[in-house]
Simulated assay, not measured.
Amino acid sequence: MSAFSLDPVQIAWCATLRTLAAERLRPLAEKGEPGRVNRPLLAALGELGLLKRLFSDGGALDLCLLRESLAHGCTEAETALALQGLGTYPLVQAGTAAQRERWLPEVIAGRAVAAFALSEPDAGSDAAALALEAAPDTGTSAGTGGSTTTGAGGTGWRLTGEKRWISNAPEADFYTVFARTGERPGARGVTAFLVPADRPGLTGSALEMLSPHPIGALTFDGVPVTRDDVIGEPGGGFRVAMTTLNLFRPSVGAFALGMAQAALDATLTHTTERVAFGGRLKDLQAVSHRAAEMATRTEAARLLVYAAAAAYDSGAADVPQRSAMAKLFATETAQYVVDTAVQLHGARALQRGHLLEHLYREVRAPRIYEGASEVQLSIIAKELYASAQQGRTPTPDES
C-alpha cells in the first residue's frame, strides 16, 4: 500500500469480503437475537477462515481492511469478529504455550467466545483506576483448562470485585481479566489473567444497551486464579492491555469507516432516485454539497486509519498518537456521515429495520469504547507536548 491507495490484491480482497458479508453473513446476523452472542455467525466466520485471518501475521493494516469491509455489509459480523480478536489477542502477544494451545484453536474455529474484561463501574476510560482486587491465596491451584482445585502447595490469587460494560459478557467462554495484584497505584501492579467462564465465584448478567451486540457485567466473588492463568508477567497487565488497544484502536476507526461508507453509498443511491421539488434530490446544491462533504470526511478518515495501521506494522515510535488520531477522527466522522444520511433520507431512515436506523444505533458506541473521544484527545495532546519537549532547546534556567 502506498500512502494514498491500496494495491489490486487488497482491493479485490475487500470486494470479496463485502460480498461475503452481505450474502453469507448478514442472513445469519438477521436470525440472531439482539444483545446475545450469535454462535452460528461465529461458526460461519470460522468456516470462512476469517477468524484465522484475524490472528495471521498480516498486521494492523490487514485487520483494518477486514473490519472495514465486513462492517460495510454486516456490522454484526464485523463486531463478532473484532470481539474475538480483542479478547484473544492478549494470549497471542503474551500468553503461555498452554493457554494458546487450549483456546486459540477453539476461537479460530468459531467454537469458543472470548471477552476483554478491562472496564469497571468506576474505571472505564481511566483504565489505570482499576479496582478489581487479586488478593494472594496460597491455597489455590487452578488448571489452564478451567478446572480448579485447592491444595496446601498451590500459590495464586482470589479475584474480588466487578467488571462492567464487557462485550460478550456474560456468555463468553473465557475472559481476559485485568486485576490489581499490588498496592502500587495507577498502571503499576495490574496483572492480566485468563479466566474460564466456569470458574467458581464468577457470575454475570446482561445489560440492555443501545448497541445491538452483547454487553454485560461480571461479579468476582473470590474467583481462584494461579500463576498458570497469568498472561505475561505479574504486574505487567497494563502493558498487555495497552498493546492490545494500540492495535485495535485504529481498527475501531476502520469499523466506523465501513459504516460511514455504507451510509454514504445509501445516500448516493437515494438522492439519485428520489424525486422532490420537481427534480432529483441530487440536483439540489444543498443536497449534493452535503454528499460531497460526507465523502471528503470519509476519505480523510480512511487515510488516517491506514496511516496508523502502517505505523503499527512498521514499529514506528508514534503509534499511540496515530492510533488515537485514527480512532478519534474516524468515529466522529462516521457519526457525522450517518447522521447526515438520516437527514437526507428523511423519516424512512428512522423506521425500524432500515439500514440507516441500524447504523444510527451502531455508530454511537465506538466514540466511547476503547477510549472515549476525549481520552483520544488527551493521548494526542500528551504525545504532542512530549515530542515538542524532546525537540526543543533548553532555556537558560534549565541549563
Rank of each mutant, 00 (worst) to 15 (best):
A310P: 00
L130C: 12
A123D: 09
S2P: 03
A197F: 04
L118S: 09
E78K: 00
M259A: 10
L86M: 10
Y385S: 07
A310N: 09
M259N: 08
T296D: 12
L6Y: 11
A311N: 01
E332K: 12
G232Y: 01
C64G: 01
G95S: 02
G151F: 10
Y385Q: 02
D57E: 15
S125M: 13
L65P: 05
K163P: 07
A98D: 13
D137Y: 10
H354F: 08
E332M: 11
R280T: 10
R26K: 12
P234Y: 05
F248G: 05
H358W: 01
T148F: 12
A71F: 00
G32N: 06
E30N: 11
G145F: 04
T272I: 02
R164K: 14
A192Q: 08
S125E: 12
M294S: 06
G49H: 06
F277G: 06
Y175R: 03
D221S: 15
R18L: 00
S5L: 05
E162N: 10
A187G: 11
L207N: 12
C74K: 00
D137I: 06
P136I: 13
E374M: 11
L17M: 05
G32K: 01
A117E: 10
I379V: 14
H345T: 03
L245D: 08
H345W: 13
F329C: 10
C14D: 01
E30D: 14
P105W: 06
G189T: 08
V190C: 08
D229P: 06
P27W: 05
M1D: 09
Q376S: 15
D173S: 03
G143V: 03
I368R: 06
A197T: 07
T271N: 12
A334S: 13
S147G: 13
E273K: 14
V223G: 07
R18G: 03
A169W: 03
